[in-house]
């Protein structure tokens, strides 16, 4: 049993999982095995997805047991059970709840970021230093450039906006992309030799 608990086993599994697609891509060998692995991933992702659900469920059950935010946790579990039952009993009500309740609720909560971005503009967008000035000038130009009616009225703005977007912005993003690509290779190498183990959740 203690042999099975050794950290080397998951590291070997990690290596197999990562090398199979690479060997298939670069050599054309082990193609069937790589395809099989990719179809396993579909099942594994679904199981891992459901773990998240179990975790959240446990959290709310725990809340009820401990008397913490009981009403909200009851509402979470109640709406979960109700909607899950509806999903199998009546498809049209399920679809209606998704379109008219879940979607606007989800969009409304996402929209908070928009409201708070305005307050950031009012409180935080200060012309304090050369870098801040550059940042804000570009921000203002890009905002106006993307304003449909102003675009229609000012062709010069389109030229400036296009240039910022396509030249310095693309160049800087390209540097970031290359950096990310190299980091990925480094991460891969570290994981293969067992130096990077964070994906195992400690240990």
């Amino acid at each position: 049993m203690s042999f099975l608990r050794r950290i080397e086993i998951p590291i070997i599994l990690f290596a197999i999982g990562s090398l199979l697609p690479l060997i298939d891509y670069y050599t054309g060998n082990l193609s069937v095995q790589a395809s099989e692995l990719l179809s396993w991933v579909v099942i594994l992702v679904t199981f891992s997805y459901l773990i998240g659900v179990v975790n959240l469920f446990r959290y709310h059950l725990n809340n009820i047991r401990k008397g913490r935010d009981v009403y909200y946790s009851v509402l979470v579990i109640g709406s979960f059970l109700f909607y899950l039952a509806i999903a199998y009993l009546n498809k049209s009500i399920y679809d209606w709840i998704f379109s008219k309740l879940y979607t606007p609720l989800s969009m409304s909560i996402s929209s908070f970021v928009g409201f708070y971005t305005y307050t950031v503009f009012l409180r935080g967008a200060r012309l304090k230093s050369p870098t801040a000035i550059l940042l804000l000038i570009v921000t203002v130009v890009i905002l106006l450039y993307n304003t449909p009616s102003i675009r229609a009225l000012s062709p010069q703005l389109i030229t400036v906006g296009d240039w910022i977007k396509n030249v310095p912005n693309t160049g800087a993003y390209r540097g970031i992309l290359i950096g990310m690509g190299i980091s990925m290779i480094v991460l891969f190498m570290r994981a293969i030799i067992g130096r990077e183990r964070s994906y195992l959740g400690g240990g």
């Binding site: 086993i9 998951p10 999982g17 690479l22 891992s48 990925m184």
Partner: peptide, 18 residues
């Protein structure tokens, strides 16, 4: 649980790196 997670993470990173 570390075994399937290792395989899943490996496949994800391998594919992304490719």
């Amino acid at each position: 649980s570390r075994w399937p997670i290792a395989l899943l993470s490996g496949a994800g990173l391998g594919v992304a790196m490719k």
